[in-house]
Structures are given as structure tokens and as C-alpha cells.
Design a protein around this nucleic acid. Structure first.
Length: 143
RNA sequence: GCGGAUGGCCGGACGGUCGCGGUGCGUCCAAUCAGCGAUGACGUAUCGAGGAAAGUCCGGACUCCACAAGGCAACGGUGCCGGGUAACGCCCGGCUGGGGAAACCCAAGGGAAAGCGCCACAGAGAACAGACCGCCCCGCAUGUCGGGGUAAGGGUGAAACGGUGGGGUAAGAGCCCACCGCGGGACUGGCAACAGGACCGGCAUGGCAAGCCCCACCGGGAGCAACGCCGAAUAGGGACCUCGCGGGCCGCGCGCCCAAGACCGCCUUGGUCUGGAGGUCCGGGUUGGCAGCUAGAGGGCACCGGCAACGGUGUCACCAGAGGAAUGAUCGUCGAACCGGAGCAAUCCGGGGAACAGAAUCCGGCUUACAGGCCAUCCGCGCAU
RNA sequence: UGGGGUGUAGCCAAGUGGUAAGGCAACGGUUUUUGGUACCGCGUACCGUAGGUUCGAAUCCUACCACCCCAG
């Protein structure tokens, strides 16, 4: 009785991720990074620092098309209120910029900077993120 | 009006646009004949951080583990008395002591005649007292002398064995007296802590218990990352089935021997290791999912009891439930602190743009952080009457 | 979120109520042509912060601050 059910649910779980990515081609579906290993993988990949924050990004190369975004605010950022506000402002940025310009199959991580991420003018942060994404997508080899 | 004391409350306001989390309702989408219609998507309605959500310092609820009951011991905690409470180390009322001109505030505030211990340095002496300098008497060898009396004076110390005055004396001393302090205390008031106190005692009892301790009371341990359920991949464990052994042995198990292979750089010798494959099921179990998870010793209002903390009755509403963790972005109007200017002043003009801080199982407290504002009561001063 | 621990000189640290040891480093001196080594000397502590108990606190009590560790 049980064996056929298990195989069926297993196939369903595998195919569940691909259909939404294929069906929605205009705007990218964004999911949130949750695993610590994913954050560490992004930390080893391309980086682009700005006055507002630090952007890390990488192509997963696992066949799926989902764009995923993670947010990091360490204790250096400040107390809990400042850490949460930094994450929320970065989340708002990601909703505007990464949803439009993010490349399929990539993971992005935004790292807060003490002070700047909370206090910087939002319009400047939008420009910072667009610029940073260009640099992550087209890395310049530096000596 | 100014200065102060106490208690309580608020913690930027309103609106637009784009977004986020929960719940209700509606629509859409499936493996699979029908039924039910999850996750998800969209629409709509509604709700969506705090007075400290914090520190994690106490007390509980809840869950698991341990456990016959009671006593004793050990360990930890609490500590004036009475009350409140589910409970508390919390709160209320009172007492005592201290601070303040007052309103009022502060206090780990039981026991030091149960016992032990400690009190450095200084000082003669530091705790059933003692005698360095003194003071006084006597003796003679008349002095840097000996014996005795004394504890008033000096000096040391945080602390020196009642204080002040008088009498008394060789000098002194509660030796005697007055007042104060101290100890005991009939009796009176109070539930009690305690207060008052006739009378008695010439003074006995230095401090430290946030030193050991004694007395009284309380306490089993761990924590929602507790606990319960479902359970992919990979590796390993157990049970069973099928196929297959290069040869030999036999107890027939996948056991032993030989051959074979790999390694010890290579060769010889020698040594070590390997000696099956596939399938099904079971149990443990990580990522993950579900649940615990929010209706409560809860809140608002009214009345009653109580000085109060609080309790009782009635009534009203449902008021966050996330999980790399929901509150954000932006615009407009108004806006406190603060800054600049004008004015005798009230005030006006311009700038400025809100403190501490974010739920994580849930309650009751404590503590700490906090821009600014509002209300009530009380005390003192000033003015008017 | 819960549980536990540590703060003493630049570093490592001893110190259970009475003037806060010791070592390394630093600094100065001697020896050496110079450096190193060796020897001698020397300073540095509001004992994490603030209150309290006590005559007296690094030590005892209370509150706070900072840092570290453990548990999925």
C-alpha cells in the first residue's frame, strides 16, 4: 500500500519547483534564502560594496530558475531595532530592483552596513543597488 | 504665580499610493470515476509590537523525568508585625530607627545572657579587663628608688567597660545623691510588631550574623531548542527472500583452507587486507513538515465590600501569533524638543522634524533605559481677599 | 529563546576582610665595535561599573555593563 504513495509524492516534490518559473516569464518570482549553507556559498562568490550595503551574488547552476534573496545584519549594525529596520529597507530595495533586474537562477545576499543602511536616502540606495548588480553580473578582474 | 512631594496616564496625529504576516469569506487550479476540496494564486473584509516587548533577577502555569507516606539530616533561599495573592524575594497598611522646615522619603529591620571565630596598625590595655604617663599614701639607702591605693586627667584607636553636675576622699571610684541613659518589669492599650508604664536594680549586656551559626518558614530536577506526531536522500544496524560461488573440506554456517587480487617504491622471501550481488520489511534518526501556539490566575465599564493592596457581582468586546523571523518605502497636512531673529512681555517669523526601544510558550512582579507632555492630591513661600 | 561561565598592569595571571604576589613584554643601566644573550634596576592597577554591609572590601551582598561557551 505505502510504496506507490511515496514514489508519487517524491516526483511531485521534484516537479513542484519548475512550473512557476516557466509560467511567469515577465516578472521574476523571488523567494527568501533560509539555509546557512546558501549564505556561506554567496559569501564566497562575487561581491560589490556600496555606500549603503554590500551585495553578494552567484549563479546556482542547479537547473532551477528561481531568483532568491537573503538579508544579513550582524550585531555590528546595532541593536534589534536597527537590525530589523536595515533588513526591511533592504527588502524594499530587493522588491523594486532585483525583481526587475535579477538574473534567473541566481542567489543574492544583501549585507547591512552600520549606520548607512538605516540612514541613507532611499533614492540613493536604489541607484547603489542597480550599480552593484551590474558589477556582480559583469565582474572586472582586478590585480 | 514660584519652588517642591506623591500617585496615575500618554508615548507624535490624520490621510493617499505601492508592499508584508495572520484570520474569515468568495473565485480559480490537481494526481483520480465520484465526493471532499489541502498547499498555492487572485479578490475582499478585518486584525497586526511595548511600557518597558529589554535584563533574565524572583514567582507560577504547562510539559517531560524521578518519586509509597511521614520524620530527620544535608544543601539553597527568605527574615519587624498584620493583611492581599495561584504564588513570590512582590504589593498594601502599620511599627521601630534614620533624613527633611514640611508634604514626604529611606532601611536584608529576627537572635550577640546557645556556642565558636574575628577585631589589622596604633595603644598600657581590644573583651570572665588592664595600668604607660599621671594623681595620692607609706617606707627609706632621698631617687631615673621600692611597696601600695586609684581609674577622675593625658595619650592611641573605628571602638577603651555609662554621661553631666554635686557630695565625698589621702587621691579617687555609682562609694552616695539628682537628672539623663540602661536592664528587669506588675499593669494598661493593640490580633500583632510595638507603645505607655507603677515599681525594682547602682550598672550587669563592646562591635561584626551581607563570618560560621541558632530559630522560624519555604523548596524534587530540567526546560517550548520542553514535549508529541509525520518522516525524503545518504551512510550504518537488524530480519527475511532470490541469484551466484575458481577449487577443496565439513558440523553446511557464508565458516575454514588453498588459489587469486590489492598494498608494503620494484624483484625474491615475508607481512597486512579483501573474499559476493540484488530485493523486501523493521527500528533508531538529521534536513524538513505538523503540533505545542495563544480565550487568559486576561482586558474595558458599572455597582458593592475594604483605609488600601485587593475581592465580589453584573455587563461588553475578542485584542499579534512570526519561524534567516511579518510593521517597510514614499508623498501631503499638522506638529514637540531644539536653533536663529524681532519684541519690555504675551507672542510672532524662519529653520528643524520626535526619547528608550521590536513580541518568539504564556502570565504575576522586580530591576534597568527613556525626548517630551497631561491630570489629580498635598507641602512651603509670595500676591489678593 | 533558554542554560552556564569569566572580568586584577600592554599580555599571562596569584590573591577567601587588614600596605594587590610572580612571570613575560616595555623602559633605563652594565658587559659587547654593534646587535643578540646574560646580569642589575625600574615604573605601570580608581582590582569591569555603581551602590550597600563593615572601623576597613579585589574579597561579603545587591543592581548594572562587557565578553565567552553550550543547546536546533
Amino acid at each position: 500500500m505505502t510504496p506507490p504513495e511515496e514514489t508519487a509524492t517524491g516526483q511531485e516534490a521534484e516537479t513542484a519547483e519548475s512550473p512557476p518559473a516557466v509560467s511567469l516569464s515577465v516578472t521574476q518570482p523571488i523567494s527568501v534564502l533560509r539555509k546557512r549553507a546558501d549564505f556561506l556559498a554567496c559569501a564566497r562568490a562575487a561581491k560589490a560594496g556600496t555606500d549603503s550595503f554590500l551585495l553578494q551574488g552567484r549563479a546556482r547552476d542547479d537547473g532551477t530558475q528561481t531568483v532568491r534573496v537573503g538579508f544579513t545584519a550582524s550585531k555590528k549594525t546595532g541593536n534589534a531595532v536597527l537590525r530589523n529596520r536595515a533588513k526591511r529597507r533592504m527588502r524594499a530595495l530587493a522588491r523594486e530592483v532585483i525583481a526587475a533586474k535579477g538574473q534567473a537562477g541566481w542567489d543574492y545576499v544583501l549585507v547591512a552596513k552600520p549606520g548607512a543602511t538605516v540612514s541613507r536616502v532611499y533614492a540613493h540606495m536604489l541607484a547603489d543597488l542597480e550599480h552593484a548588480m551590474d558589477r556582480v553580473h559583469n565582474p572586472k578582474p582586478r590585480g
